[in-house]
């Protein structure tokens, strides 16, 4: 099966990226000026306490040894212990990973469900009324800050209409679906206009391809041509754009998470940075990197499913 070979190859290619990122994550502690442990403890600690933490974190060892240990432990899933929460980083991060990934996947799904039909419609009615309305609505929704959209949705659908809960993650799959609908929609209202615009442009471009005229000369209907020839060819550049934006959203969803009080990775990151919880920051850096690599891998697989030419690349 080509897909195993394809994914395997992509994973091998990800190894140097991962090494680079572990190095950056590792240096997070060592690049900060001054003694990170004192910074972590905000100068309130005695020398003995500092030495104790240094020893516990292994910070008294030579750098290379520390890095080797860090990688060795990270491979087994051990990301150290949070200074503030006094719990394993991997456990803290995993707890937050689920709501965040759910939100991200949900937002992606909503964006695609919104964007594809609207983009197809806009492209098919280029420069007509529907096209203009879609473009203006997209620009407005893209230009509004996420927290503002979030608040409007909370007011409208949450407080006034009471259709959806306005905070939290909920219980069970359908509970998550209900609770995360408004936050996912908030992200989608930002992401969908981007997708619509790029998909519309890509479709208009694909429409001028000669094979579209050949298809028309074969007697195919406009609808079939639009979906089978134009949309399919236009999806590839758009999948890439989607992947880049989701990758960015991995750590950028913090605003939405805080507006809707979703205990996700973004909130954890803000908390860890403000309390200088370095092991957690280190762990998060790694997890974000893994997620971005994962998203890109999915995008590559999607492209390969759409266009077989990319399978051998």
């Amino acid at each position: 099966m080509w897909i195993f070979r394809f994914v395997g190859l992509r994973l091998l290619q990800a190894i140097p990226v991962l090494l680079g990122i572990t190095l950056v994550a590792f240096l997070a502690i060592h690049l900060v000026p001054g003694d990170p442990v004192r910074i972590m403890l905000q100068g309130r600690a005695s020398d003995a306490a500092v030495a104790e933490i240094n020893a516990r974190l292994g910070l008294d060892q030579p750098l290379l040894v520390q890095y080797g240990r860090f990688v060795g432990r990270a491979v087994t899933g051990d990301l150290g212990t949070s200074i503030i929460q006094r719990a394993p980083v991997s456990k803290i991060v995993t707890e937050r990973l689920i709501p965040s990934s759910f939100l991200l996947a949900y937002a992606t799904l909503l964006s695609v469900l919104l964007a594809v039909p609207l983009a197809v419609w806009a492209a098919a009615r280029r420069d007509r009324f529907a096209d203009h309305v879609i473009r203006i609505a997209g620009t407005v929704s893209f230009a509004m800050p996420s927290f503002w959209i979030g608040l409007i949705l909370i007011l409208g659908f949450g407080l006034t209409l009471k259709w959806f809960p306005i905070a939290g993650f909920g219980q069970g799959f359908w509970g998550h679906v209900r609770h995360l609908f408004l936050p996912a929609l908030t992200i989608a209202l930002f992401l969908a206009p981007l997708l619509i615009q790029s998909l519309r442009a890509a479709m208009l471009d694909a429409m001028t391809a000669e094979h579209v005229e050949v298809a028309r000369a074969k007697g195919l209907g406009e609808r079939r041509i639009l979906f089978k020839y134009v949309l399919r060819a236009a999806l590839i550049p758009v999948v890439t754009i989607l992947a880049v934006n989701i990758g960015w959203m991995v750590s950028g969803s913090v605003i939405v998470e805080s507006v809707f009080s979703v205990a996700g990775l973004g909130m954890l990151l803000v908390h860890a940075v403000s309390t200088r919880d370095y092991p957690v920051i280190q762990g998060l850096t790694l997890v974000f990197a893994l997620m971005v690599i994962g998203v890109n891998l999915l995008a590559d697989v999607a492209c390969a499913l759409i266009d077989r030419r990319t399978r051998n690349a």
């Binding site: 000669e210 007697g219 399919r232 759409i306 266009d307």
Partner: peptide, 23 residues
């Protein structure tokens, strides 16, 4: 549309771009 491709068919200049690359 029924006539295109059945009664009258056409071959174009550039074979490299005459077929959709994704099918």
């Amino acid at each position: 549309r029924e006539i295109r491709g059945t009664d009258i068919a056409m071959v174009f200049q550039n074979p490299m771009t005459s077929l959709s690359p994704v099918w």
